[in-house]
Amino acid sequence: MKKFRRHLLISAFCALSSAAILPVQAQATYPTKAVTITTAFAAGSGPDAVLRQVSDKLSKLWNQPVLVNNKPGGGGFIAMDSVQRLPADGYNLLQLDSEHLAAVPYLYKSKNFVTLNTFDPVAPLFRTPFFIAVSTESKWQSLKDLVADAKSSPGKVSFGSWGIGSPGHLGGEEIELLSSVDMTHVAFREVSQLYTGVATGDIQWAFASIPSSAGVFKSGKIRYLAIAAPKRAPQMPNVPTAAEAGGPKGLDVNSFVVLVAPKGLPADVTARINADVQKVMADPDIKARYNTFAFEALNWSPDEIRKQAEIKSKTYGKLVARKNISLE
């Protein structure tokens, strides 16, 4: 009997020891097969370009294929629907931006869909600031001039964006709220049409990232009045901040892009992916791409991603409710 009890104790100890090292083993062996990253962005877009470069670096680091699957459209739901029911094992990831995380629940109220109740944050990719772009022929020389015109002629100043609920749209709503003005929003189907519209004066201004507006900017057809951020961009040091340009203080319009996974991803796999994504983002090639686009590399943990999404959510909730904005 003593031998039997001793055998049971040894067996129990071995079982507990094995369980204790399972996370370490999982972390050490992941991934053992191809990883697919679905993206809500179109091929050739800024987020897609970064994702493909990061995926290539991850593939080399992991010695496994990392595949990119573009599923744009539908406010992000085409991509989200295709991933949300897949196994939460780290082999099915999804690229979304802060608007998918924080604005979608307000824009599609009847769906009763809260993005971060369905997906777990995994790793950050970048944050991009937005500039206020006008035609080179515009009479406005500062953001102060733009706001003054909007105040003197309610509803007459027009601004464009790449879609209802986009940062370009909600950023304009934020300027209205902070400056107590009323402007007219025009949504475009194509980003190229948006900045052509600004260049020709069909619309008077729009938010723009460096990659999305580079062609029109370099051709001399648009210029930037300000950057909607607390500090100037090193890539555009002569462009003042919104506050420096006489605009509303505290204006900070940006979007961040992250990787998420179906709910329930094991913590050790999450930690592995987060660490490895940040490792490849330190690569000189990735740093150079980020510098070209004025993208800011982020070192957020999954908890920090959730925290930042909640901060965005509070802002977007107010802006959407203010004009009852909806995509339904």
Rank of each mutant, 00 (worst) to 15 (best):
S138Y: 10
P121F: 07
V186M: 11
S212G: 11
P87R: 14
K231I: 12
S82D: 14
D149S: 07
T136D: 02
Y91P: 13
Q84T: 12
L143F: 09
W300C: 11
S255M: 15
A79K: 13
V257K: 03
A309W: 09
R5F: 10
V181E: 07
A123G: 09
T128R: 13
N238P: 04
G220D: 07
F113M: 06
E173C: 00
I175G: 05
K218E: 14
A49C: 07
R127W: 02
W62Y: 03
F77I: 03
S135K: 12
K221A: 10
D97C: 05
V277K: 09
E99V: 02
F295A: 08
K109I: 04
S98Y: 05
N112R: 15
P234R: 11
D89E: 08
A187C: 12
D303E: 14
C14W: 09
N324F: 00
L265H: 02
R289K: 11
V83S: 03
Y290Q: 04
R189N: 11
L125W: 04
V50E: 14
N291E: 09
K3Q: 10
S179W: 04
A42G: 09
M236L: 12
G264E: 01
H185Q: 05
S212C: 00
K3F: 05
L116M: 12
F159W: 12
P105H: 08
S213V: 06
L265W: 02
A49N: 15
R272N: 10
A206E: 10
S179H: 09
G247H: 10
V122K: 10
A102H: 04
L22E: 13
T115G: 08
Y108N: 13
E99N: 08
G220Q: 06
V104A: 15
M183I: 11
L298A: 04
D56C: 00
A321D: 11
A102G: 01
G264P: 03
K144Y: 05
F126D: 06
K151H: 12
F77K: 12
K71S: 11
A187W: 10
S212R: 03
L86N: 06
A133H: 03
F13S: 15
V280Q: 07
L194C: 01
P47N: 08
E176F: 02
A282M: 14
E99T: 13
A243V: 05
T29A: 09
E296S: 12
V239H: 06
L259D: 05
P154R: 09
S192E: 09
E173F: 01
L51G: 08
L319T: 03
V191C: 00
G250M: 15
S219G: 05
S18T: 15
A43V: 13
